[in-house]
Computed example of a mutant assay.
Amino acid sequence: MSDQVSGKDGRPRWLPFDLLGDPVSANKGMKGRPQHAPTAENLEKLVLLFGMNRSEAECAAAIGLSVPAMRKHYFSSPELQRAKRHADMMLEGELLQRLNQQSIAGKTSATEKLLKRLDKSRLGPTPTAKPKATKRKGVKEERRDAAWDAGRQDDGWGPLLHGDGGKALPN
């Protein structure tokens, strides 16, 4: 009974659960924070967020971790890194599978949504808006640019050394 009251180093040994039934970390009463324990729920949140094209910082903040801690605990294995890279395709596949199952079960709204998604995928990416026309340069800007271009093309002192308007003098 005495070994249950105190730990190996003479400190009090803690029960695995507190009075409310919540688990107590192994380093209770010692210095430092307990190490993060990855959960399937947090991994699912991360896949959803990466599927929505969120940044790593936003995803880490959503589960209350730093970016390095998120990488360490959730994306250390190659399978999870692959899931992170292809999260949008995984989510799209899962959605299509569910819509297909509902469509087979006879739900017409699911069939309509499935057909719309398939038509959208056949059409390809939506066209982006054309860039706006650039504003015409003023006279001063055109002259400044012309002077800049002339200065870049000049290979030295040019016409300033030759008194004949840029024609080279014979040696």
Rank of each mutant, 00 (worst) to 15 (best):
V5L: 11
S6V: 11
G7M: 02
G7K: 01
K8W: 11
G10K: 14
P12Q: 12
F17Q: 13
F17I: 03
F17S: 07
D18Q: 10
G21A: 13
G21S: 12
P23M: 06
S25T: 14
N27M: 03
N27V: 12
N27H: 06
G29E: 10
M30C: 13
K31Y: 11
G32I: 02
G32Q: 01
P38G: 02
P38I: 01
E41N: 03
N42I: 01
L43V: 01
K45W: 00
V47L: 06
L48M: 13
L49D: 06
R54M: 14
E56C: 06
A62H: 02
G64D: 01
L65N: 00
K72M: 08
Y74A: 01
Y74C: 01
F75M: 07
S77Y: 09
S77P: 04
E79Y: 13
L80D: 15
L80P: 08
L80F: 12
L80A: 14
R82L: 15
A83Y: 09
D88S: 15
M89R: 06
L91N: 12
E92N: 08
G93R: 11
L95F: 11
L96N: 05
R98D: 05
Q101W: 01
Q102P: 02
Q102E: 06
S103T: 05
S103G: 07
I104H: 02
K107F: 08
S109C: 08
E112H: 03
K113H: 07
L114W: 04
L115V: 04
L118Y: 03
L118C: 05
K120Y: 10
R122V: 00
G124T: 00
T126N: 08
T126P: 05
T126C: 00
T126R: 04
T126Q: 10
P131H: 05
K135Y: 06
K135N: 03
R136T: 09
E142R: 15
D145A: 10
D145S: 08
D145G: 04
A146I: 14
A147I: 13
W148H: 15
A150F: 09
G151Y: 14
R152C: 14
G158M: 01
P159S: 09
L160T: 06
G163R: 09
G165L: 02
G166W: 10
A168Q: 09
L169Q: 05
